[in-house]
């Protein structure tokens, strides 16, 4: 009887904590590396190019490579972080409601900027890939890259792109926009949070919006609007643009 209980405990101690340990390990790594990235950014005079998201992605990817951990195992461990994206998106409603006066006042300007930005983003993505000899599939996957990922994947599936590639482009584009967007816009003499927020939401989707949102509530409100509205507009214009673009 005692030996049976001992064996059971051995089995328990051997197997049960393992997935739990793995979850805790990768959660710790992800949080630690991101926190380190944030500190590094502050140390570097809060430079936008020292983006903590890129820093964390690079180091975790290196960690997966070194430990020979498959991405699926990693994602399973840290899916609680990914899950929080949902509530965090809903949370953008609060800055949006707080700056509703500014939003209604700039509604006509926003509509214009939204249409111009969406069309530019889609057309330039397709044309640049094709001009530089990229494949048709890559060009199609590039078309909806500025939209929030679930919409981008739905669009790319519909037009014949590769969903995983579109997801990769959305993340890379967001990182690019977060790293150099603000500096470039300020060089152009654009200092208004409404323009910065809307541009980040439309051209850089989530990651660039995150960068603007944590700096200013008005920026957060316009970034939230940019993400939501650009999703709708792009879903409508991508099939239209492809209809008119030959090839």
């Amino acid at each position: 009887m005692q030996s049976l209980s001992h064996t059971l405990h051995q089995i328990y101690a051997r197997f049960l904590p393992e997935p739990n340990m793995e979850t805790l390990f990768w959660l710790s790594v992800t949080l630690a590396v991101f926190a380190l990235g944030v500190r590094l950014q502050i140390r570097l005079g809060r430079a936008p190019w020292a983006n903590p998201v890129l820093f964390a992605i690079a180091f975790v990817a290196l960690g997966l490579l070194v430990t020979e951990t498959p991405y699926a195992t990693y994602f399973e461990s840290v899916k609680i972080i990914n899950f929080l994206l949902g509530p965090a998106t809903v949370a953008l409603a609060i800055p949006l409601a707080d700056s509703i006066r500014l939003v209604t006042r700039s509604l006509p300007a926003m509509t214009l900027a939204l249409l111009a930005g969406s069309v530019t983003s889609v057309v330039s993505g397709i044309v640049l890939v094709l001009l530089l000899g990229g494949s048709h599939e890559v060009a199609l996957s590039m078309a909806p890259k500025a939209v929030t990922t679930p919409i981008a994947i739905a669009i790319t599936t519909q037009i014949g792109g590769i969903p995983a590639l579109t997801a990769a482009f959305a993340i890379l584009g967001g990182i690019i926009a977060a790293m150099i967007g603000e500096t470039i816009l300020r060089r152009l003499g654009i200092t208004d949070w409404r323009a910065h927020g809307l541009a980040a939401g439309i051209a850089g989707s989530g990651i660039a919006a995150a960068q603007v949102a944590q700096r200013d509530p008005v920026g957060a409100a316009f970034a939230a609007l940019g993400i939501g509205l650009n999703g709708l507009v792009t879903a409508i214009i991508v099939p239209l643009i492809l209809y008119f673009l030959p090839g």
């Binding site: 998201v53 975790v60 972080i81 990914n82 929080l84």
Partner: peptide, 10 residues
């Protein structure tokens, strides 16, 4: 918000 994009980004 940035942290929340890391799992998908990897």
């Amino acid at each position: 918000l940035g942290l929340l994009f890391v799992p998908a980004g990897v």
